[in-house]
Design a protein around this nucleic acid. Structure first.
Lengths: 235, 235
DNA sequence: CCAAAAGTGTTAAGCCTACACCCATGT
DNA sequence: ACATGGGTGTAGGCTTAACACTTTTGG
């Protein structure tokens, strides 16, 4: 199990100066299917932890940037276009024994996506976050997931990222259901509406409305352009 | 400059499945020397970027956890005991060409330390953060530093981490000077005092006072035990 | 007309800000 | 006594939270 230095000859570096690592990306892909927050998991097809659930991920190419690796994994697993999702680095996990096979450092990314229509791949499926125990995932993936969920919860407080969970056009009620699913609380519809409207750079009216069957039809909105930036709170 | 797969034989893995990386830690060590925020830098003794300033750091050992590598670098460069400092992961930087020699993924850590007494090592020295331009450091270290400073600024808003910049025993005025240095603003002394006192889990009175020469002596405090947790705001 | 959901008004409580003011010490 | 910094009081403005109320649709 010990890894020794490997012979790779590079100018300016003594080959034995540094130990070799494998670097992977793991993805915490979250979506909201009201009233639940869901995470994308893959079932492991081979040992170790064969048959158990894990976060999607894979090796980083030798000439590939970390974010590019995360983006391509996301598109592979969900078919979601990069422009439609929010993707940010979550943290790096590199305990020596986190993978029993070898020394792997994994850079975790958090993706927030709108609930995708139909075409989920066979290998991957959506799971309720609150139905997973602290140790139900392979390796240290439960820990990574917990950090992703915590990040998502706190980011909704001080950014406008909640719109990443919505489709292109959405109502204020849909946006509210995102907050309710992620936070696991109910929000006052009246105050929520006012708060969203009062926050610059959050949503922009389309002028259209959308009827949900019963009740007064709701106006629809799109996310403002400047959404990833650094806007106000919504609590 | 191309790196190819290396032959390392590990059970369960095909040696050619993954590309080899070197993994390093880089440290953003911040301290406050009122009225300035300072960062610890080392001057590079060899090529590339010989002579220019860089963040302290180094390779992660093959059986070493990431945080352990960061802690030992911190102790090496500052002599500061781990228990006295706050250390948290900041982010991971792994652009393919960030180091011209080879593919290096660097896990950056942020350390907040009290201004150390005397024994600064020769290799490392403290620099005013606001005296550094966007490109004055080697590699992508200016970017890493910027992220560290930003993290420190925002964390002071919603945690009690400011006490990490203070010695074991401090006055409210000293604590205020920390906020003023990190944020680059002046704060109302009266309101600040009230806010700190009203925040549970922030400081605890020692019962002692400390005279700063002129004026009424200030009561001294120590950081509450539960400081890294998740306490209220101080703005 | 009635139920339901969207959206607006209103009011009281709490928080923040500015600044007046008192306290305790060194010179 | 007086200057200096520590610390408390207080009033006005702003934000929040709770909930009454009006609007607009489907049945």
């Amino acid at each position: 199990m010990l890894l020794h230095s490997v012979a790779v000859s590079i100018d300016g570096y003594n080959p034995n100066d540094y130990p070799p690592f494998a670097v992977t990306v793991d993805l915490v892909v979250l979506t909201v299917r009201p009233p639940n927050l869901k995470v994308l998991l893959t079932q492991r097809g081979e040992s170790p932890a064969k048959g158990s659930w894990a976060l999607p991920g894979g090796f980083v190419g030798s000439e590939q940037d970390l974010i590019d690796a995360a983006q391509s994994k996301l598109t592979d697993k969900t078919g979601i276009q990069v422009a439609e999702a929010h993707l940010e680095q979550l943290g790096t996990f590199g305990a020596p024994k986190r993978d029993p096979r070898m020394r792997i450092v994994s850079v975790a990314y958090l993706a927030l996506v709108a609930d995708p229509p139909e075409p989920e791949l066979d290998e991957a499926s959506w799971h309720r976050v609150d139905g997973l125990s602290d140790r139900s995932l392979a390796f240290d993936h439960s820990e990574i997931l917990a950090k992703g969920v915590e990040r998502a919860r706190s980011k909704l407080e001080y950014t406008t990222l909640a719109t990443s969970f919505c489709g292109a056009e959405f109502t204020v009620a849909e946006l509210r259901s995102v907050y309710e699913a992620v936070w696991g609380t109910e929000l006052d519809a009246a105050n929520f509406h006012r708060k969203v409207m009062a926050t610059d750079g959050f949503v922009e009216a389309t002028g259209r409305t959308e009827s949900a069957g019963r009740g007064r039809p709701a106006r629809t909105y799109v996310a403002s352009d400047a959404r990833d930036l650094h806007p106000p709170i919504v609590r």
